[in-house]
């Protein structure tokens, strides 16, 4: 009788022990602890840092390498920045030579993510390389590919997708968080794209002037007629601009600027009936904003509202 009880007894004890030792597997619905990175993910520009913050969520630190007020195309990293890049979980680059320093710096290739590479076939080739200047960086010319693709929200979404893919591949976040965060970001970027659609609809066949080739990507996507007239927002109306202005039979009404134009330039523009519109690319951090996405939304909304205001007719 006692012998008959021994085997079932052992089975019961073993079964109990197996359950107690954690035979259960976590279900996908269980909340997982956020992954702890050893240091911040580094981004070469503020748009990338903003996209990365949105993709990675609030628990993962992201550091924008370029400081406020600097132009990423001219900024050079310090030894400390480059040493931090060696230790960082990842380095996000825009590509298309927007960070010239990155082509010679000793960056870890397996953790360096060139966020524009996936849609390289969509890059715009800038064949004309007229020399011009804006800000304090001196004269320069653009040749090769236009690196401002983040200005097209749907290409910014592609950059975010590249960040998400790297984040999952390199283990910066877990899959559940990545999906939720990305869905939120996608909604925000689609809202920006919708604003561009509204702006393009309002503008119709009007030509818009721009002081820099920053807006060529959204212009191409939405069929905007854009003419680039190199004027430094900090300076005044130029002779070249005057010649171009004089040649036009139908004068444009809007002039897009990367930054607030100077008072003198504004008054010239007003005299000519040109409305200055500031659409900031937000390449470097801007005081008072936590994300470049907020800057873009604010500027696009302001432009859209201006176009839709009754006084504009």
């Amino acid at each position: 009788m006692l012998r008959n009880l021994v085997l079932p007894g052992w089975c019961w004890i073993l079964g109990t022990l197996m359950i107690a030792c954690g035979g259960q597997t976590p279900t996908p619905t269980e909340a997982s602890e956020p992954v702890k990175l050893e240091g911040p993910v580094l981004a070469s520009t503020w748009p990338l840092a903003s996209l990365a913050s949105a993709v990675l969520g609030p628990h993962q630190p992201v550091r924008c390498l370029v400081p406020a007020g600097e132009d990423p195309a001219f900024w050079q990293p310090s030894d400390e920045d480059l040493a931090a890049a060696l230790q960082a979980p990842g380095v996000l680059l825009n590509g298309a030579q927007f960070e010239p320093w990155a082509s010679t710096a000793n960056l870890p290739s397996s953790r360096t993510i060139r966020t524009g590479r996936a849609f390289r076939s969509q890059w715009i080739d800038e064949t004309s390389g007229a020399t011009h200047s804006h800000g304090a960086q001196g004269a320069h010319s653009h040749k090769g590919f236009d690196p401002h693709y983040w200005m097209d929200p749907l290409l910014a979404l592609e950059q975010a997708r590249a960040i998400q893919s790297a984040a999952l591949g390199l283990g910066w976040i877990d899959g559940g968080i990545a999906t939720t965060q990305f869905a939120e970001l996608e909604t925000r970027l689609q809202e920006l794209d919708a604003l561009w659609v509204e702006i393009a609809t309002e503008l119709g066949s009007q030509t818009v002037w721009a002081n820099h080739g920053t807006y060529t990507y959204p212009a191409r996507r939405h069929g905007l007629r854009l003419a680039v007239v190199d004027i430094d927002p900090d300076k005044s109306w130029t002779q070249e601009a005057e010649i171009q202005w004089a040649k036009l039979e139908t004068k444009p009404r809007y002039f897009l600027f990367e930054d607030q134009p100077s008072i003198a330039l504004q008054s010239t523009l007003h005299r000519k009936g040109l409305q200055p519109i500031v659409l900031r690319p937000a390449e470097a951090p801007i005081d008072g904003y936590s994300s470049a996405l907020d800057v873009w939304r604010e500027d696009l909304r302001a432009f859209r509202n201006l176009l839709q205001s009754p006084s504009n007719d």
Partner: peptide, 19 residues
């Protein structure tokens, strides 16, 4: 690239990595 030093387990006795 810097991953070489990581993969080979090379460590600095003095100074810093080439940047």
């Amino acid at each position: 690239t810097p991953e070489y030093f990581e993969r080979r387990g090379l460590q600095l006795a003095a100074g810093q990595w080439p940047l």
